[in-house]
């Protein structure tokens, strides 16, 4: 599979890109920092398929999207899938305290990511379809106190991805929305892990299966599926009282 991968340098993206490279998928890495991209490319190349190249892409800057994906497609000599694990996270307290940070997180996690998907969608459809796998979050499932702002961006992203799947599946575009729960990565370092906190590796294994099957929605780790089903069904009166 020829894959343009945004976010392979850290966390779940690092784990997923390793699994893909080690089974022979050819990746092209997109990300913020060229040095960091080079390190991840070297890591993947050490015991898996060497990535076809790297290019700088900033989710906050939509003008960088087309050029970077163009380079990916050219270097890969085709494009079967686009994966986006990148995003920003900050705690509700930090976001409330810093409107500029809130603006950036909302912009990156919603506007930036959606516009990136638009660019990816166009390219995949032009080639007759493919897979677009994007990491949203369980934070977007319900309006919850600790993730009011971050969750709002992810909720919007989830809805967009759902519509994209409805709109284009018949044309061969398979949209896979990943909803991770709490996963122990650098992004969540410093937060107390709740019960059922997952490891990036187990998330990666689940996501890879979902990509291969074209499953439209995947919760990872698996336990978060039933947990979120319960949370989605709680009445507002209960949600107002609970702290999660």
């Amino acid at each position: 599979m020829k894959v343009a991968f945004l976010g392979a340098t850290a966390g779940m993206g690092r784990a997923l890109s390793r699994k893909m490279a080690s089974r022979g998928d050819i990746l092209f890495l997109l990300g913020l920092d060229p040095e960091d991209l080079a390190r991840s490319a070297a890591d993947l190349g050490t015991d898996g398929a060497r990535p076809a190249g790297v290019a700088v892409l900033d989710l906050a800057d939509p003008s960088s999207f087309a050029g970077a994906l163009e380079r990916a497609e050219a270097a890969l000599g085709g494009l079967d899938a686009v994966v986006c694990t990148a995003g920003m996270f900050a705690t509700q307290e930090a976001l409330e305290a810093d409107p500029a940070l809130a603006e950036r997180v909302l912009h990156v996690d919603f506007t930036g990511t959606v516009l990136f998907c638009e660019e990816a969608r166009k390219r995949l459809l032009a080639r007759g379809g493919g897979t677009l796998c994007v990491f949203s979050s369980v934070a977007g499932e319900r309006g919850r106190k600790p993730v009011a702002l971050y969750g709002a961006a992810k909720a919007g992203l989830t809805r967009y991805l759902e519509a994209l799947d409805h709109k284009h599946r018949a044309e061969g575009l398979r949209v896979v929305t990943v909803k991770p729960g709490f996963v122990k990565t650098g992004m969540t370092a410093g937060l107390a892990p709740p019960p059922f906190a997952g490891e990036p590796d187990e998330v990666a294994a689940r996501v890879l299966r979902a990509i291969d099957r074209g499953s439209p929605v995947v919760y990872a780790p698996a336990a978060w599926g039933p947990i979120m089903a319960v949370i989605r069904s709680l009445p507002r009166a209960v949600m107002r009282r609970v702290s999660f």
């Binding site: 070297a42 890591d43 190349g45």
Partner: peptide, 16 residues
């Protein structure tokens, strides 16, 4: 979390 291999020279075995 800094767990990347930065290259293995399969001639000499030098790993970074």
């Amino acid at each position: 979390l800094a767990d990347r291999l930065l290259g293995l020279d399969t001639q000499t075995g030098l790993l970074r």
